[in-house]
Amino acid sequence: MTPLLHYDAVEACYGHAQILHGTSFSVDKGASVAILGRNGVGKTTVVNTLFGIARLTGGTIRLAGKPLTRPRPYSAARAGVSVVIQGRGILQNLTVRENLLLGAATRRRGPWNLQRVYELYPVLQERADAPGTALSGGQQQMLALGRGLMANPDLLVLDEPSEGLAPVIVDELAVVLNRLRAEGTTILLIEQNLSLVERVAEDFFVLSKGRIVDQGKIAATGRAELQKHIAI
């Protein structure tokens, strides 16, 4: 089966600083995959390369078998990739509703629309006209995830979604992500919170100095082994 996302010996840089040195991994359709690694090893650059924010200088990225020769931020989104970026990226000059509508910029058809996101997170409907950044941290994470879903993505990428969230909110996030996966959404999770990783991801890849150095099944790997990969 053709993987939904495939990185083959990907090299990427910001300016002259090379961050990825031949990164290779695959995410199958319907899978839930985590990328683990210490701070500064290039996890976010994996996402940024897909969206053309980091410059692809070598190797190939394929989305559903099609190579992204010159990734642009909007081309990945239009190809069905939605990202919840680190820090959530809520636009303060837009209301909650407008932030959600921005997520539908690609006009991809699918089960998600404004009403369904409101059903998932009723608080977003209650605060629909408030500025996006007026929400609490947990609510902003709901907004970021809701915005990602508005794109009806084939692949949902989440970069450190649990950052700054209370454990109870992380628990709720895990429930929602598992529900999405059960509905067929493919998930790529970049995360240091092992509690979330263990509940959401099935497979993992370990990134170190811009290369994948280990991979395996979450269920078959002990907490101590996983912890070793993310210890600062």
Binding site: F51, I53, Y74, A76, R78, L91, Q92, A105, R147
Partner: peptide, 12 residues
């Protein structure tokens, strides 16, 4: 106008 990169990764 607020964040062109963020707008673009939403598909704009």
């Amino acid at each position: 106008s607020f964040n062109p990169t963020l707008a673009a990764i939403q598909g704009v």
